[in-house]
Every structure is written in C-alpha cells, then in structure tokens.
Write a protein that binds this DNA or RNA. Structure first.
Lengths: 229, 229
DNA sequence: GATTGACTCGTACAACGTACGAACAAATCT
DNA sequence: AGATTTGTTCGTACGTTGTACGAGTCAATC
C-alpha cells in the first residue's frame, strides 16, 4: 500500500492522479476528468457561470449527479479546472528569442483572446487557482523576461505586473464590452449626469473603446519600463 | 402623480431614489438602504462572499428576510451597492494639480488599499457595476490625466489602462497574499515541480513578493508612457 | 468462488433566492 | 371624524442548489 497520489489525500472518493485508469472498458460514455472538464466548458459557454450546476453538468454527461464526485472534490474544483483548461498555450515555448517583445505580445494577447472566447472565465479569475496551464504561462513569461535582461531580483515584480495588467484588461473587456442595447441604455443613463461626470463624457468612456489598441499600448509602456534597454 | 424615480421603474416594490423618506418615524431600527449596505459590508467582512445570504443579512438587521426586497431588487444589487460603498474616495478632487503624478498615486493607492481592507470586494470586481463612487474615481482620474496633458483622443485608453492595472493588482494581491500556512503548502507543492518551472522558482513567485513596491513600479511605468513629457 | 477495489448513483437534507399576498401603520383625503 | 391610500414589513411556500451517505455494479485479483 504505497501512497500513490500526489498530495495529501485522505478523502475516500478520488481517482489516482496522472496514470490511466489501468484499463478503460469499452464504453466511451465513461466519466473522466477530461470529459467532465470539457463538458463543463461547453456548459459554461452556453449558459454562463450560473448555468453550471452539478446536476446539469451530469445530465450533459449522461450520468448521475453524484457520480461527478468520484472525479472531483466539489464544484469549486470544476471551476478551477475549467478556468485552467481554457488557458492552454500552444505557442513557441523558448525563452531565448531575439524578438522577446514579439514573444511576450503573442503570448499575452493569446491569453486575453482565449479568455474572451469564454467570457465566463474572466469572472472566475479572482480565485487562488494556479493550474498547470497558468503556471506554464507564467513560467514562459518569466523565461522570456529573464532572457531579455530583467534582473533576477526584478523578475517577481515584472511577472506580476504583466499578469495584473492582463487579467485586469480581460475582466474589463469582458464586463464592459456592451451590446448595442446596453450601450444605448448606458448612454442614456449617463446623459443627464454629464454635468457630474464631464470628463467621463469627454473621454467617451464606455462608448467608443478601442479595447485592443489600448491593451497593446499599455503593454508597450509596461515593457518599456520593466525591461532594461 | 408625476414620475418621481430616476430611471425605468415599473417594479412594484421600490423606494424612491434620492430623497429622504419624507419623515423617518422614531425607531432607529427601521430599514434603509444605507443600513442594509452598511450591514452587508459588516457581514461580508466577517463571513466572506459566501457568508452573505439574504436571511443572514436580515437577521443582523433585526428584520425579516423579505423586508429587504422593498429596498433592493435582488441579491445582486446588494453586492453592487456593497462594492461601490467600499470605494468612496475622500481626497483632493481637483484635477489641476502641479503634482499630477502624486495625485494619481494617492488616489489609486487608496483605491487598492480600500479594497484590500475588504478582500471580498476584489472578487466582486468582475461585474458591470459602475456605482457613483467608482464613477467619481474614474472622473477624477480622467480629470487629472487631462490636466497633465493627455490628449482628448488618448483619454479613454489611458483611463482604462490604469483601471485595468489597479483592479488586476488588487485581485492578485487579495488572492495570492497567502498566509504562512498556505505558503508552506504552496512551497511544498511547487518544490517537486521545480524542474518543470525553474523560472517561477528563480523569481520566487508566490514566496517573496513585494506587492506594494511592484504595484508602484508598474504604475510608474504606465504613467511614463501614458502621459506626454 | 471469494474478495477487493474502482466507479456509479438514488435518496435525502439543509440552505438558498425570492414570488405572493396578507398584515399593519402613517399620511392623506373627504 | 371616518375612509382610503400609500409605504413598509414579513410568514409561508416553492423550486433549486451542493453534497453526505450508503447501497449498488462490475472487472481484476487472489
């Protein structure tokens, strides 16, 4: 009876972590974390954060609700796994590019774009989940920065600054990229407050937003400061 | 019967918006939005986001759960109001300071600090709520930037960039400012992954974080770029 | 053939948000 | 004065949620 799992286990119901279940018997309808997470993402895409319930998720999987709990500790873990799964990065992994700026831009824009393809993911960001895909991105980010000349002592702050900026921009965009109907309503609501918020009106905040351009600009400025010339 | 409320009303239960209820009769235990919001903040501070339920909130107010719904449309509105209430800014409101950089720093650091005093507020950021206090801060921010020389066309992007950075930094800090116990656990979990994430280890991510210093540094870099010299 | 272990799921429970409408009180009208 | 309206409170009830518990199934192993 050697311990086989990774961390502290203790709980009764739990699959082993990392190895194939020894022999999957025929049926493709067998549950697995992969299938659960993929279906959770589907459901989240279709119904939003509040639309994901353990029962509905199980229904989509053709399973009983309680069956999920063999593969997953609780609903929170489903969210954690769904969030991380959306952040997989297929892209150059090398840290030693001549074009370090391009590499960072590529990875971070892909990051933001990936989340915007699944807007629910932005609202899941305020959690302590550092899944493997997020960690890989942070690792790559640090590798590029280090290769670009950021001192070891500054690496920590540089990584966090960029992370902060990316998740902030993603959350904002996901929340305030209003539909036309919403924008008309917002415009009307702000209209008779224009004497109270003249600058907001001047900036046409919420109305004319070049989200992508602003994102790139801010990123440029951060990198100008973070990476020594 | 002139329309008295502000926006579209239509709902049955709702107090008038903005004017005092004409004559508050003696009892200080009467419900009001102010009391509801203040108590909601107390409850959130004490029990966290999941600890706030309409029943518990009503209990604290010495009222029945359904009484809340006269003052508030639904639970979401309680969250919106609680979030905005935490973001009140008492500080210099002028936009034409010689020390525009100091004014921005003061306001944004106060913003972040205020939210960190109520960590639940960080997880409420991914919502579309632009309450009066948030709007005032954005207005002030825009005013300072405009006064510092940011072109009208760049104002929108500049405001959003700073907002993005601030909320990202706040969320990160609120989520990853681990307790000693958590940190020990995280360290152990990452330890045997150090060959997979060498740079994360090199940067001592999650372990030695100078949150405040990193926040100020990134802010400096953003302002260097956003405001013309 | 008996035992183990991995996996599934029916039932049940406490807690949730809130619709509905009855109750009461103060203000206003006649 | 009484009658009526208007503002506010709240008891009850319904549908839905996350998940504890334990019984069930089936393949692998002894």
């Amino acid at each position: 009876m050697a311990a086989k799992g990774g961390g502290a286990q203790g709980k009764r119901p739990r699959r082993q972590a990392g190895s194939v279940p020894s022999m999957q018997q025929g049926s493709e309808r067998a549950l697995s974390i992969e299938r659960i997470v993929a279906t959770a993402v589907e459901l989240l895409d279709a119904e939003g954060v509040d639309g994901l319930t353990m029962r509905r998720l199980a229904d989509r999987l053709g399973a009983g609700a309680m069956s999920l709990y063999w593969h997953v500790d609780n609903k929170e873990e489903v969210f954690d796994l769904a969030l991380d799964s959306v952040l997989e990065y297929r892209g150059p992994q090398g840290g030693e590019t001549a074009d370090w700026r391009g590499a960072i831009f590529h990875m971070l824009e892909d990051w933001r774009a990936g989340m915007l393809r699944h807007p629910w993911s932005a609202s899941l960001l305020p959690r302590r989940a550092l899944g493997p895909n997020i960690l890989s991105r942070l690792e790559l980010l640090g590798r590029i920065l280090y290769g670009a000349g950021v001192a070891e002592a500054d690496l920590n702050g540089a990584i966090w600054s960029l992370w902060n900026y990316v998740i902030g921009a993603t959350i904002t965009r996901a929340n305030f990229d209003l539909s036309d109907a919403d924008m008309a309503a917002a415009q009307q609501r702000l209209a008779h407050l224009s004497e109270k918020y003249p600058t907001i009106e001047r900036a046409r905040l919420l109305l004319d937003n070049d989200w992508d351009g602003a994102f790139r600009k801010g990123l440029d400025f951060l990198l100008d400061g973070l990476v020594p010339k």
